[in-house]
Design a protein around this nucleic acid. Structure first.
Lengths: 335, 335
DNA sequence: TTGTAAGCGTTATCAT
DNA sequence: ATGATAACGCTTACAA
């Protein structure tokens, strides 16, 4: 049971030095005679030689591996983002290590340490607890996924939910709605939410009277949506439409409306945000604001690769991809 | 801009040798005096030393990293499996690299090569094209996810869909259905499907007349489900219930039934397999066979870790986790 | 208990 | 165009 052939075995077999073998493997178009190249390639073939990336990393201080740290791959929002990341990294010959922080700062910190120990080349992160400074202390090329309060020194790639929310609200208003509820998702004390300000700003600009009672704050879950819609339906003056902070909440709201014997959209309209798969399979299918999830992953990856190759640029950029309103069946003029 | 401190820096600062530092870092409870340990720990602290895993791998020939190769993380079935893998690997200090083959054998082969180059410690794979022999040639601890035809030399962790299908069929029959359609998912010429045999076997055992027309084969997609249900509804003698090969197909079938003006479950019952998130949010919610996706990931990981730690066992095992029937709203006695 | 020293498989520098 | 040779940072016999 002899172990894997090394560059030396190849060199011996080809009758050249390690250096030459290394040169043909690197394939930089460096100076190697055709004759030498041929013999080396033949030897590689015969021995089934596969270069040892670990040894290479040792010398070059590059691992060609990055980490993607997100809260939870099980949340229907993330797989597409992950796929975007995966695809561009793959093209560029990078491996991507996945990490699920589970909204747990402690776990998240462990991942940062893993990045250091394993000398990963970069980090793509949707931070749930770590600060701008901690990220800075990591001293590794980093791009942040999603708009985050307090992130000032890194490139950020997110989506323009402020504008997107306005589009959705505009859709509702143009249908004739004036009394619009908001089920707003609780983030753990971070971003107060472009979506909340979009709501307030929009209503003000549209000259619609604001009503504190129409705003409820709920966890990002089906149950949160159910509960939130429940609250809204208890109101004396019910909303005719409800704008939910994400699709999962919206689906919960849809269910609550159904359970209360209301028809959607005839009796009440509902909209969500994200456009996860399940949003298209409800009855009625959910009108929602589609986030460019896949592209978000791709763009963030491109930025990260730039940082890795060309060093972190002087001024951090914020790239906001635009969202798209997908009008489906859950919205209609007020009954 | 000095680079990261190495074990030598720590040694110097603590006034000991590298070996000693290495010993306290390894923390094997090896012979190290309390005094030495203290000084080393202090030095590590002060310097902010983080061991270089790459260098370590170089010596130990272990990377503490495995690869999870699946067709597509975007398919709602996989994220939970991935999460299971992630969680146990995390506990054991392993990183997991993700790879999406996209049902492309070529891509899949590239991933196998990546496993070699990067000297990964193990592979968890749902093979889409590579053969048992190719996997064997990899010579890396491997566990296969999902029952696969032709895999003879590896541990397999899957779910008992044969039994599960029978349970679902039994549910339908006990509700009174006798004419049960099957929308069967096309795999790329691999497993003919325990689900198909389950169907045939079950009907035979239940003394129900078989009808070729009730079996249609479709791609694993929403469109496939729509189309499949369409075919079934064109039949002179329509089925009163349809058993679908997975939830996505079932959801498509549900939509087709709705579009045809049929009520589910009053006019026709529908069941799926997998229990993806969207299955619980349709109207009516889908009765389905729930696969132990998370556990599947966990179990497969445990097997893999055994192989890594104790070497590949003599006889490959096949572990079939059992599925659970989830009766929801899409099934009822025939109208 | 501690230290010395020999690798691990590459890449990069410097001669030739 | 090619070859010696010195790192890279760690682990692990073996010696002391």
């Amino acid at each position: 049971m002899k172990s894997r052939p090394t560059i030396i075995d190849v060199a011996e077999r080809a009758g050249v030095s390690k250096s030459t073998v290394s040169r043909v493997v690197a394939d930089d178009g460096q100076g190697v005679s055709d004759r030498a190249r041929e013999r080396v390639e033949k030897a590689i073939e015969e021995l089934g030689y596969v270069p040892n990336a670990v040894a290479s990393s040792m010398r070059t201080a590059r691992t060609n591996t990055i980490m993607l740290a997100i809260p939870d791959i099980t949340n229907p929002y993330w797989p597409e983002v992950a796929r975007g990341v995966q695809d561009v990294m793959d093209e560029e010959g990078y491996s991507v290590v996945f990490a699920n922080s589970d909204w747990n700062t402690h776990r998240e910190r462990k991942y940062l340490e893993m990045v250091r120990r394993n000398r990963l080349d970069g980090l793509l992160i949707n931070p749930v607890g770590v600060s701008n400074d901690e990220l800075k202390a990591l001293a590794v090329p980093t791009v942040v996924l999603g708009l985050q309060q307090g992130i000032t020194d890194f490139d950020i790639v997110g989506s323009n939910s402020y504008t997107a929310s306005k589009t959705a609200l505009d859709h509702l208003v143009s249908l004739g709605h004036r009394r619009i509820g908001l089920i707003w998702g609780q983030r753990q004390g971070r971003v107060k939410g472009p979506r909340l300000s979009a709501y307030t700003d929009f209503l003000r600009d549209a000259g619609i009277e604001q009503d504190e009672n129409l705003i409820v704050s709920m966890p990002f879950s089906l149950a949160g949506g159910v509960e939130g819609m429940g609250r809204l339906l208890e109101l004396e003056r019910r909303p005719t439409a409800v704008y939910c902070d994400n699709d999962i909440i919206a689906i919960g709201a849809l269910q609550a409306a159904n359970n209360a014997g209301l028809r959607v959209p005839e009796d009440i309209s509902v909209t969500g945000v994200d456009d996860i798969f399940a949003a298209s399979t409800t009855t009625p299918p959910l009108t929602t604001v589609s986030k460019p999830k896949y592209d978000l992953g791709r763009q963030a990856s491109r930025f990260l690769l730039e940082h890795i190759d060309q060093g972190t640029p002087d001024a951090p950029r914020t790239l906001l991809l635009s969202c798209q309103l997908r009008v489906r069946g859950s919205t209609a003029p007020p009954g």
